[in-house]
Nucleic acid binder design. Structure first.
Lengths: 259, 259
DNA sequence: CGGCAATTTGACTAGGGTCAATGGCCGTGG
DNA sequence: CCACGGCCATTGACCCTAGTCAAATTGCCG
């Protein structure tokens, strides 16, 4: 269980920084990318931030640890793992740039999940009490915080919905769609994604076994919805994200469809 | 689609009410019941509340409706239903006294779920902007809000975990345990609970068919973990909540166990 | 090059979905 | 008051999806 070997620097920002006008939207950037840039900028200007670089496998925090800080992904990919008292273990979330981590610790006073880096990335860590103080001085921050928590709740419910209503193949397709879409929204290329998780991890996240994940990927590849460009199987090329979405939809109609 | 026929009254409370010391814990009451009483008291003292009585089937709000208010269950039972664009529909949450409703609307500006009463109950509705204003005047309110959102996230993740790691029978057992435990924490009787949902609704919530729910209940009844005291099948008597918990645990060990 | 983890694929099985028949409960109306 | 119809629940029979077990292959890394 390696603990994060983190390079940490503290960025103190002026307490009552002047409120700058929102950054102009860069042409072609999605509203999500814009929102994320805006969030990071506002945090940087109004809250004391500790930056931390983590590498694949490093854990940002672990379940049971005392809660004191929230975290925002600045780059890289993270997963959160929920562990039941009896040892059951489940990947409950994937987190990309702009996503917050650690909300589950607020109520309990202790983190309820492990947060683990899937590759090299940087997180910004904010002390929760400092964040609240900053919110009191600069109200828009509170809006950002609440929206992030709200999105987290919405996202979790969408996961529940997919888990309950989709077949294994469709869940895998939906997983790829979600990942690609998240990349696209953040201005990254989404026609070719690198899965930073093993089949076992993906299966755990999607509520199926690693064999089923592998078979689903093979079927999707046979149907030309995805392709494996490299000899490695971690890179997935997605010629048409829309087609993946359509595939998920199609799998919902057991009735007389084409085919 | 009947809309709530609600009796609404507005309770204006003094803007800057004196902060009272937390109510003394009544002997024998759980910390959850205490927390809920405290929350309701603080809301009553510091925020403008609209009270609303709903009856079984009434909807408190519907997906797509403009978000403007959060809601707190004062009595009764509620479910939230998530609807995908393609018509998939899924019960994503059960809500008892003290639970908040509507968090998913904050980020999107629109509610993402339907909230429906499972029987007669009362909700307190707070305008979100008024709540934020009240938080600015009385900081502890903000703590309550964040804790409630945090618990919601934790709860959703626990649902995910159960859904992915438990067998159908164990999920039904865990569902009954959760319901009974929630009742107990709120000071209500938990040796006999009345399911306010049909088998189909329970199945939808647990990600299985109504037949599987029925069979699971029959098996649990055969194993004496539950009983149907009345001729009606909506009342379930639970002689020992701990035994249900043990049953869930036991189902996790496929290895050589007693039996 | 060797060892090991990750992946793929096949064969088999079982848990749970689907379809169907039956019975209880209750409201409505003759 | 009783008959009827609708909804809900239960149970059985059957089948399919996905889990389990196993073997072979590939790629990675020391």
């Amino acid at each position: 269980m390696m603990t994060a070997t983190a390079t940490a620097t503290t960025a103190r920002t002026p307490i009552a920084a002047t409120l700058l006008p929102p950054q102009r939207p860069a042409a072609g950037q999605s509203v999500v990318a814009q929102r994320i840039a805006d969030t990071l900028r506002q945090l940087q200007e109004h809250v004391a931030i500790t930056r931390r670089v983590l590498h694949a496998g490093d854990s940002l925090y672990q379940a049971g640890e005392d809660f004191g800080s929230l975290h925002v992904v600045h780059s890289g990919f993270f997963k959160t793992i929920n562990q039941a008292a009896d040892g059951r273990e489940q990947v409950v979330g994937l987190h990309f740039k702009g996503d917050w981590l650690g909300f589950d610790g607020i109520a309990a006073g202790r983190y309820g999940c492990d947060a683990v880096a899937l590759d090299t990335g940087e997180v910004w860590t904010l002390r929760y009490d400092a964040l609240l103080a900053a919110c009191a001085r600069h109200a828009p921050l509170l809006g950002l915080l609440h929206e992030a928590m709200s999105r987290e709740i919405t996202r979790d419910r969408d996961s529940l919905l997919s888990l309950c209503t989709l077949s294994a193949d469709a869940r895998v397709a939906d997983f790829l769609r979600y990942w690609a879409e998240s990349m696209g929204q953040r201005g990254l290329r989404n026609d070719q994604i690198t899965l930073r998780m093993t089949r076992a991890e993906i299966g755990n996240y999607l509520g199926m076994t690693l064999e089923t994940v592998s078979r689903a990927l093979s079927r999707l590849s046979r149907d030309k919805l995805i392709a494996f460009p490299e000899r490695g199987r971690r890179d997935v090329s997605i010629p048409d994200v829309q087609a993946l979405h359509a595939y998920v939809q199609r799998s919902l109609t057991p009735s007389t469809m084409l085919q």
